[in-house]
Design a protein around this nucleic acid. Structure first.
Length: 681
DNA sequence: GTCAGAAGGTTTTTT
DNA sequence: ACCTTCTGAC
């Protein structure tokens, strides 16, 4: 079979809109892809079509995703059509930025072996610059600087849209100069520096224009201003630029995502063709109707009408429960009653604990997705810091981290002195340490790091590290520090060494390894499991047979976010993950902020027409078996009327009505499902 | 100055 | 439950 007929065959399996999205290459293309509309499939078929049908060289295609997970998935899909060795460049925005920066490091005046600082590293660097300030200030500044970089702004730009603190420009400048002195970059730089460089260097810009004649971007609704600038710098009128996204699924505004990127794309790229993918292949019709009602309240949206290709299915089930323990129990029941895999979704990572406990007790194995990020663990970051120091003896963040593990009699003050001395003399930190501190511990540290650095080229990286963590005392440090955790921590360090073993030897291999560690925030998830615990955020792009959205309570969800529309979109993302069944739970009370708190049902529940879901327990038993156990005699409290007692409960179909007599003499009828001001006590 | 343990305040989402 | 800051011994 010729490759041509392969992609022709593929085209036939697509619906009309999908086919148009694949074959339109004459002008910029905006694909508005509703949840479950097969967008990953469309992008990968499009790549196959471009290569096989349009005879485009694969290395002229750049596909950009938002997460490493998505990039990996796309690589696999494309490999199905074009084979493993396909040469299509599929990267995240950040890893693409790193690629540009390393490739043209000399033009930019950057060390090509730079390390990438994450948020923690950034705070540490700020700590070094502003030792007299507390963590709170440092965090706030780091946040503002990161948002500025997301918006494509430098320290010399006006930053009043981000803060009214006039000193921020100077803080930003000092931070940026420190980064440059160390020779490393942060997340924001990975986008902003390439933008700046490409805008300034016409020669390289043209080179990349010739290289990439097609640019595809996934999850465009989560891109920031800086990323949009990068796209513009990479494209000309000749480039076929195609972005895919869903404005209803924009959930990263807090991190600098700019929904206007997708809303204003047609204005920015003239003669843009818009294709809407509105056929949902994932969820049952009941789930989809529910989902549509969820976002219907939002104002800022293109507004599309998804239609399901599947059967009606079971109505989503809403369960009002007493507390977190009941919620976990309810989840176990759902898992046992339904075929296929199940995801337990929650708003905050802290909520996972109680589910983990319950699942373990029940002997059900599960995977926590995303949360305990391997690369973010203390001991793993320690080892990475050591490796970063090997690559760059000027890396003060790495040095500051590793120098106290184990304690060597070098605390904050001495550390600061060493760094200050290195800065003044313009020498590296090891030399500075040698000249300033003459203790055995300090000497031993310097010797070990130097020996390790020299060994990188000759010995395998894994072996160098194995010896290094022992010599430097990191292993015994954790052993002495907390015996309980020791086993797990050593295991993690060993896992890291194993991962490093795949990289062989040499500096460039180590740099590559570090980049993977720095950019890949994901934890290894076990795909063979059938129960997954994850935040609604990390559920984006995934699908499950059964989904339980937990913690539907005001203050938790929606909670803390000022942006109610974004929370609602998050709700939409959560419910559209479900293929067959959807459950929601709302607790009367739960542990929050280390204390038991009484909660009200989420206001989002009030927005939903009740015919779109059924309430757990309702209509299943006798008169006593009412919504959330409303029975006569129940003591209640109402925000306006105060304390009272339930006198009657009637199920005036299809809604439960309770009559309450308050202590102040007032009598009232309530629909408990909607009366969020009324609660049982 | 360093460091460990106690006290005290605080809790979002993540490339 | 966690992390930061405080306190006092060395």
């Amino acid at each position: 079979m010729s490759s041509n007929s392969t992609s022709l065959h593929l085209l036939e399996s697509l619906n009309e809109a999908q086919r148009e999205a694949v074959t339109h290459i004459q002008s910029p293309l905006l694909i508005l892809a509703g949840a479950g509309s097969g967008k990953t499939r469309v992008i990968s078929v499009k790549i196959a079509y471009l290569v096989q049908q349009c005879e485009l060289f694969p290395n002229r295609i750049l596909a950009v995703t938002f997460t490493n997970k998505a990039a990996k998935e796309m690589r696999e899909r494309v490999a199905e059509f074009l084979g493993e060795d396909h040469h299509v460049m599929i990267k995240t925005f950040h890893s693409f930025g790193a690629w540009v920066l390393r490739r043209y490091a000399k033009n930019i005046g950057l060390n090509p072996e730079f390390s990438i600082y994450d948020d923690t590293d950034t705070i540490q660097l700020m700590q070094n610059i502003f030792p007299e300030h507390g963590k709170k200030d440092l965090k706030r500044w780091a946040y503002i600087i990161a948002r500025a970089k997301d918006k494509g702004l430098y320290y010399s730009d006006r930053l009043d849209e981000l803060t009214d603190d006039p000193s921020i420009n100077s803080i930003y400048e000092q931070y940026q100069k420190a980064l440059e002195r160390v020779g490393n970059v942060d997340f924001g730089d990975l986008i902003l520096k390439p933008v700046n460089f490409l805008q300034a260097d016409a020669q390289v810009r043209e080179k990349l224009h010739k290289r990439f004649s097609v640019i595809l971007v996934d999850e465009y609704q989560d891109s920031n201003v800086s990323q949009s600038l990068l796209l513009r710098a990479l494209s000309t009128e000749e480039t076929h630029i195609c972005v895919v996204g869903d404005d209803d699924q924009s959930i990263y505004k807090f991190r600098g995502a700019e929904v206007n990127n997708i809303l204003e794309f047609p204005q920015l790229f003239p003669s843009t063709k818009i294709v809407q993918l509105e056929q949902n292949y994932r969820s049952t019709e009941s789930i989809l109707q529910f989902a549509s009602a969820v976002v219907a309240y939002n104002k800022e949206r293109y507004g599309k009408k998804l239609s399901s290709t599947r059967h009606k299915g079971k109505k989503p089930v809403l369960a009002f429960l007493e507390d977190g323990a009941n919620e976990a129990e309810f989840c176990l029941q759902v898992i046992q009653e339904n075929a296929g895999n199940t995801a337990i979704l929650y708003r905050t990572n802290a909520q996972s604990r109680i589910f983990e406990t319950a699942l373990r007790k029940a002997g059900i194995s599960y995977t926590v997705v995303g949360a305990l990020k391997f690369w973010a663990r203390e001991e793993v970051k320690d080892v990475l810091a050591l490796l970063m120091l090997l690559i760059n003896h000027y890396d003060e963040v790495a040095f500051t981290r590793i120098i106290r593990k184990p304690p060597r009699g070098i605390g904050p003050k001495t550390t600061h002195d060493i760094l200050q001395y290195a800065k003044e003399k313009n020498i590296n930190i090891l030399d500075a340490m040698e000249q300033r501190i003459s203790t055995d511990a300090a000497h031993g540290f310097v010797t070990t790091v130097r020996t390790m650095t020299d060994a990188i080229e000759n010995d395998s990286l894994a072996h160098v590290l194995q010896k290094g963590v022992e010599e430097i005392g990191l292993l015994s440090y954790y052993q002495d520090k907390d015996a309980d955790n020791f086993h797990k921590r050593v295991e993690n360090i060993e896992e890291l060494i194993n991962a490093l073993a795949e990289y062989g030897k040499g500096r460039s291999a180590l740099v590559e390894f570090l980049e993977t560690a720095e950019l890949d925030g994901s934890a290894k998830s076990n795909d063979s499991e059938s129960v997954f615990l994850l935040t609604m955020h990390s559920a984006k792009g995934l699908e499950f047979d059964n989904v339980i959205v937990t913690g539907m309570e005001d203050e938790l969800f929606p909670g803390f976010s000022q942006d109610k529309e974004e929370e609602r979109r998050l709700f939409y993302v959560a419910v559209t993950r479900a293929k067959n069944t959807l459950y929601l739970t709302s607790c009367h009370q739960r542990y929050l902020h280390a204390r038991m708190i009484v909660l009200h049902p989420s206001q989002f529940l009030n927005e939903l027409p009740y015919e779109l879901y059924s309430v757990y327990g309702e209509g299943m038993g006798e008169t006593q078996d009412f919504v959330g156990d409303w029975i006569p005699g129940q003591q209640v409290h109402h925000v306006e009327y105060g304390r009272g007692v339930v006198t009657h409960c009637t199920n005036r179909k299809p809604e439960l009505v309770v009559t309450v007599e308050f202590n102040n003499g007032i009598r009232g009828e309530f629909l408990p499902r909607y009366a969020s001001g009324l609660r049982r006590i």
